[in-house]
């Protein structure tokens, strides 16, 4: 039985984790490797790091933190933000990341998905897509951190990305993101029904119930940032509750650190 995954997302700028609300009022929150280890201890199944300074593309010297995270973290992690070519993707994987996520660059150059997946394997390529609702059952793809319409339909884009070899879809609803009022479950359902790969739901988590709704809508994993950073939702409590409500969850034994 495959369990559903809980994925905290950390924003990184200049090699430090930053916390903020919708990219505003950013505060230094700590060292990526230390925070990664804390989330692993709390029971996170996987982590996603988004470099919001987009230094992944421009300043390769700023990537030492990826290797430091890998030294501390023994669960899978994805790194994204500003990756524009397959050599950057390969470098991030060689530093110890399990997956890279592609967003704006893949919209501009869809063949990037194929090049990355043939170089690194589909399992290492996550397509991050920011979706804006344009009507009932219709969403448009947004690029540049969700600020600019790409002029393409969400469902046709995710299908195309899968045919090019992406191994997972990280689906963020721009409408829900930052609201703390729940995931866009209709969007999750539509994407999950359209693609043969796992779907990670993102945007809108505010309380435990929202995660339950995402999984019942077909999400394989649910990602959140602020509720975990600010402690409104505790991962171990969340997983225990979801498990008791019939969602298969990985629950790691207490005292698992003994002897390690």
């Amino acid at each position: 039985m495959l369990t559903r995954r809980i994925i905290p997302c950390l924003d990184v700028k200049d090699g430090r984790v930053v916390k903020g609300i919708r990219f505003r009022e950013l505060r230094d929150a700590g060292d990526p490797a230390t925070m990664a280890a804390e989330y692993m201890s709390e029971g996170a199944d996987e982590l996603v790091f988004l470099d919001i300074g987009a230094s992944l593309g421009s300043r390769s010297t700023m990537l030492e933190w990826v290797s430091s995270v890998a030294d501390m973290l023994f669960i899978p992690f994805t790194v994204g933000g500003g990756i524009v070519d397959e050599s950057q993707a390969r470098r991030i994987i060689s530093l110890g990341a399990d997956k890279v996520s592609l967003n704006t660059a893949a919209v501009r150059d869809p063949d990037l998905i194929r090049r990355c997946s043939s170089l690194l394997g589909s399992q290492a390529v996550v397509l991050a897509v920011d979706a804006l609702r344009t009507g009932r059952g219709h969403w448009e793809v947004m690029v540049r951190a969700g600020t600019e319409p790409a002029g393409i339909d969400l469902l046709s884009w995710v299908r195309k990305a899968c045919s090019l070899g992406c191994g997972e879809i990280l689906l963020t609803s721009i409408d829900s993101d930052g609201t703390l009022e729940g995931y866009d479950t209709e969007c999750i359902e539509a994407v999950a029904a359209s693609v043969p790969v796992p779907v990670i739901a993102s945007g809108g988590a505010g309380r435990n119930e929202h995660f339950l709704e995402a999984f019942r809508s077909g999400a394989d994993a649910a990602l959140a940032a602020s509720v975990f950073h600010f402690g409104t939702v505790r991962i171990c409590e969340l997983k225990a509750e979801l498990s008791s409500r019939g969602i298969p969850m990985r629950i790691e034994a207490g005292g698992a650190m003994n002897g390690l």
Partner: peptide, 26 residues
């Protein structure tokens, strides 16, 4: 769905010494 990605459980067919302690969760 394929690939099979994520956390899944083991069902031990043959005891694996030192690794059979009961765990409270999955």
């Amino acid at each position: 769905k394929l690939p099979h990605v994520g956390w899944n459980i083991l069902e031990w067919v043959v005891p694996f010494p030192g690794d059979m302690e009961p765990t409270p969760g999955l």
